[in-house]
Amino acid sequence: MSTDELELLLASSLHEDDSQSVDVHNARAVLRDRLERGQRAGRRRALIGIAAAVLAVVVTASLLLTGLRHEEATPVRPSPPRVAVSPSGLPVGLLKGTYEQDGLAGAILLLVRADGSGQLSSGVKGWQPCTEFGGAFGVEIRRAGPGRVSIAYDNPVLEDREVVTMSFIVRDRSVTIVSLGTPGNGLLAKASADAITGTVLHVTQAPELCSL
């Protein structure tokens, strides 16, 4: 069988049943019914959508109102006072901490003022910050980098101002001394500096220290 003959046979075979009638009348009715059902379903979907949207608005509004009422009813707790920071990076206030040196309990007090000035005092057993031998020195605290300050003995009479450097980390209302560097001849002894390293100073709003 040639290709032309096969194509002719194929076309005539496929068209053989064309004489059989197709019920267009019934099909038209079925189509009309399906379209109407589709329209009804569409309207139903639209109504459901609108109802869902309204419900969502109502629920959101009621939640918001409930939240507002709850907010009004809840007493406002005062937030803790914020700690001011001096230009050096240290918190303003009296920084107090304790340490141990040669088996003896010691204390360090560093007063930091907002203008960069301050007072430093430290000592071990029997030491009192406001006695003749344990008074606080006036110091100038300057920023020496991030988390680092230089503390100089603020006494113009002395030639050597004995600068102490201190690295620290501030957390909330405390300052941890990471390292202390000192020439070790007056303001702060080397042994004391080693003992004080690692001490945590707590920031308090104490009055000025008494000085010599």
């Binding site: 197709v22 267009v24 099909a27 038209r28």
Partner: peptide, 19 residues
């Protein structure tokens, strides 16, 4: 739409029947 249905429905049913 009705005219399109009348014009093509029968032919398309026969086409679909072969598929």
């Amino acid at each position: 739409m009705v005219a399109v249905f009348e014009a093509h429905y029968t032919h398309l049913v026969r086409l679909a029947r072969h598929l």
